[in-house]
Design a protein around this nucleic acid. Structure first.
Lengths: 238, 238
DNA sequence: GGCGGCAATCTTGTATACTAGGCTTCCCTT
DNA sequence: AAGGGAAGCCTAGTATACAAGATTGCCGCC
């Protein structure tokens, strides 16, 4: 029903969009990977027309970069962009929690608790990818509970971009703490303490940011850092 | 440099996007106007390919509606959507003011004051369209001052949608008060009173919403209202 | 031996052709 | 006369063709 959901340009395009989106967000494609239109078209069995539309949507989402006459690549967010995205995300999620608190109900509680249980389960199974995906989904689900389609869309966008950012900048990240923070939000909501829920969410987002891009205040010059990693093991990468 | 600005798909597509966007926002096209791809292509001297891309961007912005196998039309936001958009807008603009207050400077003050002066001027000249456009631009300009590209993009989107909403739902609206409200924000910023600035902005957005969609709680059944306008002048519309 | 320019190739940007699905209108039936 | 159905037209969905610009690798020159 939403004008930005996957069915926008017919089923095929939507599927490609979804697949590419997930691939980019999971950082399954090495950074800077080229995404040529015909190659993708051949892969998915569609023409460039369809691929192109999907890429344009992804570019609008900030997940791939398209410059004119140049092959699209998966996006490499700058530290500045990362900061901006997290800032907006904090702002949006604050509003989400505020709204959800206002319409809190047992139904919502059960749905949220079930989701957190699923997160726990994935973490216990050591299923890294699932854990990460569920952690992102938590926020989208919560946003859906706010009853504001636009807010939900924006949150979906920033959460995806944050996943990409974490994948690009991230150290191997420990999601156990994230689950605990999710639970804190749930508990505050359940207590009916909206202010505490907002604070918990805000702290959670900030912690995610710190864990992901916080430690090294390198500016954008990760080039040196990256190269330095290779200095110690010249000629011996196996 | 932003991946979502007008140059996305080459100059032509960007121009069409901009023109259509302005036309939709100004409600220059009567509500429900069809936007057939070939007609627009002929109008602008490009192929459907280009028009299609522009329409897809507009659809993503919520300004036109594209359903599969159906001719695109300019969007007719529901009251529910309108509410959602204003809610998100309030949230975003609160953040904008907060950030601008934090980096306030004489340069910003001068730019903002000049803009408000331009608004005043347009109002004094009775130039309705210019007044409306400048009023919207005020918010986008302010958002640009926050130094967060994503926030700026989102504000641009919601402001455009609000313009459309006001045009669809709106009674003939009096923008003098809006200018005064803009000035209130400026004055609070200049006093260094961030909280007052945020409050002023929040009240402004709420007032815009009330003036636009507030009074009649008609639900979606404006049909009766619309028809009633014609009852008094049956057979005499000239 | 290294550097700059040229050519071959690959890829995008755009137009267009073709297909399939909706909408309208007109006629037939009841 | 009114309602339903079918045919034709119109428009979107997709593939493909073609032109132009970028990239890369190679060769000659310094």
């Amino acid at each position: 029903m939403n004008r930005s959901d996957a069915s926008q340009t017919g089923g095929r395009g939507g599927r490609i969009y979804a697949v590419l989106r997930q691939a980019v967000v999971d950082q399954a494609l090495p950074p800077g990977t080229k995404l040529p239109e015909d190659a993708l078209g051949a892969e998915f069995g569609v023409s460039r027309t369809i691929v192109r539309a999907a890429l344009q949507r992804l570019a609008a989402d900030g997940l791939v970069e398209m410059k004119t006459k140049r092959t699209a690549t998966d996006a490499r967010p700058s530290l500045e962009e990362a900061r901006a995205v997290f800032e907006v995300r904090r702002c949006l999620e604050r509003e989400v929690v505020r709204l959800v608190a206002a319409r809190w109900s047992d139904t919502l509680r059960d749905a949220l608790a079930a989701h957190i249980a699923a997160e726990d389960d994935a973490a216990r199974r050591q299923d890294g990818p699932a854990t990460i995906r569920l952690a992102a989904e938590f926020h989208v689900r919560l946003a859906a509970m706010a009853g504001n389609k636009l807010l939900e869309r924006y949150v979906g966008e920033v959460v995806s971009r944050c996943s990409l950012i974490l994948a690009v900048f991230g150290r191997p990240h420990r999601s156990e703490c994230a689950i605990g923070e999710h639970r804190s939000v749930l508990e505050a909501l359940q207590r009916g303490d909206a202010a505490a829920a907002i604070a918990a969410m805000e702290e959670h987002v900030s912690l995610v940011e710190q864990r992901g891009v916080g430690g090294d205040s390198e500016g954008e010059a990760d080039l040196g850092v990256i190269l330095s990693r290779y200095l110690g093991r010249q000629g011996g990468d196996a």
